[in-house]
């Protein structure tokens, strides 16, 4: 039996949610403000969304960020999945712990340090900084998130499925493509979506690794805001929040559907 929440709990939840979402709500509301001055309410309008369409610099930056997120999320999904598979398949070998710790290091390492070290690497390697260096940097940062997600899915993976496929005549490649990959795909997709959103809103690392001609949206917004908050920025931020929210919801629905199908299996698993 479920008790109805007490007044104290209700207030606590309301305050917590307000703390998290009030700033975002204000941003969204003000993106529909007709007034040129951000803090002054001048009525509801889509004016700044129209202005945004004229703002080549912001749109270019958004396009760069989008491409960057697509490229680095795809790279991270591939590398991260491979790393997770390698760790899961190798079982317990000597030096397994250092390996898994190294995979997870970027999760806890300050971004400034990652950015700085990558910058040094690119300088030493004599790479021109720009779109591709940032894509590499984002791939490095986000692949560990993919690894964590895929690895947790692989923890209860039934490896006899792979053996069964090979026993039935499938080569290792066919086995991976037709059995393993479809079964872990919810985790891979969830990891891809997470990598995508992480890349989309990264400011710190991109500011170290990017160069002229590859200004990402967060960098553009940050530099514009230093000259004063323009209402267009509210508009583009609202669009970004929308995009990220959709992706996060899709990712969580995917993993939820997967775990529900697992439970379903368990419920019917008993011999009838």
């Amino acid at each position: 039996m479920r008790k109805s929440p007490s007044a104290f709990n209700m207030v606590a939840v309301a305050l917590g949610l307000a703390f998290l979402y009030l700033p975002i709500a204000i941003l969204i509301i003000y993106s529909f403000n007709d007034s040129r001055l951000v803090p002054v309410w001048g009525g509801l309008s889509l004016r700044w969304y129209r202005e945004l369409l004229q703002n080549e610099a912001l749109l270019d930056a958004a396009w760069v960020s989008l491409r960057l997120a697509l490229v680095s999320a795809t790279g991270a999904a591939i590398l991260g999945t491979l790393a997770a598979l390698a760790l899961a398949r190798a079982g317990r070998f000597r030096g397994r712990l250092p390996f898994s710790v190294m995979i997870y290091a970027p999760l806890v390492m300050p971004e400034v340090i990652i950015g700085l070290s990558l910058l040094l690497l690119f300088v030493v390697a004599d790479l021109d900084r720009g779109f591709w260096t940032t894509a590499m940097a984002h791939t490095t940062l986000t692949m560990c998130f993919v690894t964590v997600i895929v690895q947790s899915r692989l923890a209860d993976f039934d490896w006899s499925l792979e053996e069964a496929a090979m026993d039935l005549g499938a080569t290792p490649l066919r086995t991976f493509l037709s059995i393993t990959l479809p079964l872990i795909s919810p985790a891979v997709i969830a990891g891809w979506l997470l990598a995508f959103t992480l890349s989309l809103d990264d400011l710190v690392i991109a500011s170290f690794t990017t160069g002229p001609g590859a200004t990402t949206l967060p960098i553009r917004i940050y530099s514009d805001v230093r000259l004063g908050v323009k209402p267009e920025i509210n508009a583009i931020c609202t669009l970004m929040i929308g995009a990220v929210a959709v992706l996060v919801i899709v990712a969580s629905l995917l993993s939820k559907r997967y775990s529900m199908s697992q439970e379903h299996k368990g419920a019917l698993g008993a011999p009838m």
Partner: peptide, 10 residues
């Protein structure tokens, strides 16, 4: 081979 867990592809 028939596996003990059956190993059916879910």
């Amino acid at each position: 081979m028939m596996f003990q867990s059956y190993a059916l592809f879910p």
